Simulated assay, not measured.
Amino acid sequence: MRRADTAATLASVVVLTGVQGIAPALPQIRDQFGLDDAETSLLTLGYLIAAACVAAPIAALADRLGERRVLVTSLVVFGLSGAVVAVTADFAVLVIVRTVQGAAFGVVLALTVGLTGKGLDTALLARAQSVRVMAMALAEVVLPIAAGALLGVASWRLAAALQLAAIPVAVVCAVALPGRPPRTAGASAGEHGLRPAVAALRTPFGAAVQVPGYARFLIKFTLLTYVPLLAADAFGMSPWSIGVVLSVTAVASILAAWLAAAALARHSTARVTLIGLLLAAMPFVVLPAAPAAGYLAVLVVITGLGDGILGVANNVSASMAAPDVGRSAFFGLTGSIRNLGKFSALAVVGGTTLVAPLGGALVLVGVLGVASTAAVPAIARGQSRPPPEPTPERSIE
């Protein structure tokens, strides 16, 4: 891997400490501050809203100031926010700082998607994106375990201090990432930012690549939030067995992301996207009808395979659709649309369960996922553009 790709992947992983690394500590935080469940949820809700709404305009600054400068600044803000979280005794300050941290989280994820594999041909781009997706999936497994282990011997404040790791990663990015590129020919300062990004989103290709990304997070958030409830209530699975199934699903996602790189070297991103969507969504259509817990577990693992494939394929498609001018803003908007998928899971499943059982709501999510395959033909047409020439760069030995 190029050193820029390695740095971008490290940045993607370290900001996951803001969610996966802090989630096991939420009960302790609730008890120490004397909060109810609704107040505790503000720590995550503000974080995610900021990531979805504020990240895009901040990411757009990278088109003017340079990706390295904005990414490094966001990592520093993220790390320092973690330090404040670890020492503050005021709940209002805690919520405000977590919201600021969420904005930095959203910017880092948006910029690192665009930086990973930037300037490479499709096969090398897919390989770089595959490593990024695998690293993030592995972190989603390891970080809650590491945070839980810390909570067993120390306060939740030490778990929050894990976020300080973003500071040394910021130094790595400052050294490894290229500086601000020369302004694109014919583009004035006013033409950089959200305007060209929105224009790219309005093209058939730019709009189409958003659909699988939205669907992926709709399905993934539903899987993590609601499928455990179905497993416990309808199939009598224990918390331990549910945890094992989710862990195996995460491993399946990592394996699928690795295989996706090889598939994208031989097949079009549209075809691989279609396979990923169907594997992720179809199990939800039949999930409530599973005859036993073992069948349910197999279906959940298949969804994980689809998630890994789709994560890589969609990032590759988005990189192809991103404009040369306004590229960072494009990925900021793409990240916001993906985060909308998470909120939509709450709306779709929560709203449906008002009039139907949970199983029916999960079927609806699966149907929506399958319906998103309608965007694949537009992706196939858009990817027919010639790929960019590879950008040579010294690799890390």
Rank of each mutant, 00 (worst) to 15 (best):
G213A: 11
T249K: 06
V316R: 02
I275S: 09
A293T: 02
R327Y: 06
A290D: 04
S253A: 11
D307R: 00
A262W: 10
A290S: 13
L299F: 10
G335A: 06
L340Y: 08
L229H: 13
T303Q: 15
L223A: 08
F235E: 01
A313K: 07
L278M: 14
H267T: 11
P288R: 05
V348M: 12
M282K: 07
L346Y: 15
A270E: 05
L246W: 02
V251A: 12
L340F: 15
L354Y: 13
W240H: 15
S336Y: 11
V272T: 11
A256G: 01
M282Y: 13
A321K: 08
L264T: 05
L224V: 13
Y214F: 15
A293S: 10
M237H: 00
G276F: 05
L229P: 10
R266M: 08
V245F: 01
A347F: 14
V285H: 10
I254K: 07
G341T: 01
Y226R: 11
M320T: 14
A252F: 07
S247M: 14
G311Q: 04
V211S: 01
V316S: 01
T334G: 11
G335I: 03
R271P: 00
I219P: 02
R338Y: 14
S319V: 09
V312G: 06
V312Q: 04
F330I: 05
G308Y: 01
R271Y: 13
P212V: 09
P323Y: 06
V300E: 03
P291G: 05
G304R: 06
V251I: 13
